[in-house]
Design a protein around this nucleic acid. Structure first.
Length: 310
DNA sequence: ATATCTTCCTGGGGGC
DNA sequence: TGCCCCCAGGAAGATA
């Protein structure tokens, strides 16, 4: 569920409330949420206990806490999947229905003592992963000040808001592929942080159809798409992210309000606002896509003209 | 090797 | 009220 803006909102909250605090106790309430920790929940708990959070870093939708106090450098990785939440809570707050992992933090005045991982669908999780130097040079992703990345996230490309990324690299990566444009921008190994909402929003803003084949995409189209991705995610971040319901909230349980600014996603049957501005009328349509949905404006994002038969 | 499909889960909402 | 089906911010691993 959460895409780059939502994960970055969470990262900032963790940085504020958890950085420099020691993890005094770890409780795994559902081992399915630590299944990516291959040594098992007991090892997860024992290794993590006593560590101090040195920094909170993000690349794409991956979030991690660099830890002090381990023999070999490692990070506590958190991925929110479709429904994960990281919440800062007082110890006496009642357990959430889907509470999966509880971290008890060292005392700090006027600061809640627990970091909780709550996840309804269990597609997300927490695990420890060794830190390795980033393979793609210089510092890590946006929201990062680290030259290291967890091994488990080392295949993830630089994200939309990473200043070390270039449009030309995106163009070349897309041209190397033979697939639909939307599939490509959802591929976290091409560009990271984009999910179904912001893919549709950026494609709408750029006036491109996600069904376009990447092998024929042009530089100016990639440039438009890149600008749109950066713009939509920057605005979403400023709004605290997109919340359709209580499943996405920041570390303090508050919703973001970017849902009201969406132009395509979830707007099936509603007027395309850009067409309206231009004195035209068209309705956003929804089409099945990869087991989910794509929302497009048939006027702003025209289907490619059918090639005439030779 | 590359591209696409299947699977991991729970719960809300609509139709009957 | 209940049941069944569809749908949902993701991505690893299997399969073609």
């Amino acid at each position: 569920m959460p895409e780059l803006p939502e994960v970055e909102v969470v990262r900032r909250g963790l940085d504020k409330w958890v950085r420099n605090r020691r993890i005094d106790a770890v409780e795994v309430l559902d081992p399915r949420s630590t299944r990516r920790h291959l040594d098992g929940p007991e090892d997860f708990q024992q290794t993590l206990t006593g560590c101090t959070v040195a920094s909170v870093v993000r690349r794409g939708k991956f979030l991690w806490m660099e830890l002090d106090g381990l023999d070999t450098p490692a990070a506590l990785v958190a991925h929110l999947g479709m429904s994960g939440q990281l919440l800062i809570e007082e110890s006496d707050a009642p357990d959430e229905k889907h509470l999966k992992v509880r971290l008890s933090l060292s005392d700090l005045a006027d600061t809640p003592a627990e970091l909780r991982f709550v996840d309804q669908r269990i597609f997300g999780g927490m695990f420890l992963s060794p830190l390795v130097p980033t393979a793609d040079s210089k510092a890590g992703g946006a929201g990062s000040i680290s030259a290291f990345i967890p091994q488990a996230a080392s295949h993830i490309a630089r994200d939309v808001l990473d200043p070390a990324r270039s449009v030309e690299d995106l163009y070349l990566s897309l041209r190397k592929k033979t697939t639909q444009l939307k599939r490509a921008i959802l591929d976290q190994e091409i560009i990271s942080g984009v999910g179904n909402i912001y893919a549709d929003e950026a494609l709408w803003q750029a006036g491109l159809l996600g069904l376009r084949n990447t092998a024929t995409i042009r530089r100016n189209e990639v440039s438009r798409l890149n600008d749109a991705l950066i713009d939509v995610m920057t605005r979403a971040l400023a709004a605290g992210g997109t919340s359709f319901d209580s499943l996405y909230v920041n570390v303090n349980g508050a919703s973001g309000y970017f849902a009201r600014s969406l132009n395509a996603y979830g707007r099936e049957g509603k007027p395309c606002l850009r067409c309206l501005d231009n004195g035209r009328e068209s309705l956003i349509r929804r089409d099945p896509f990869m087991g989910r949905s794509s929302y497009t404006c048939p006027v702003c994002q025209p289907r490619p003209r059918r090639q005439p038969r030779a």
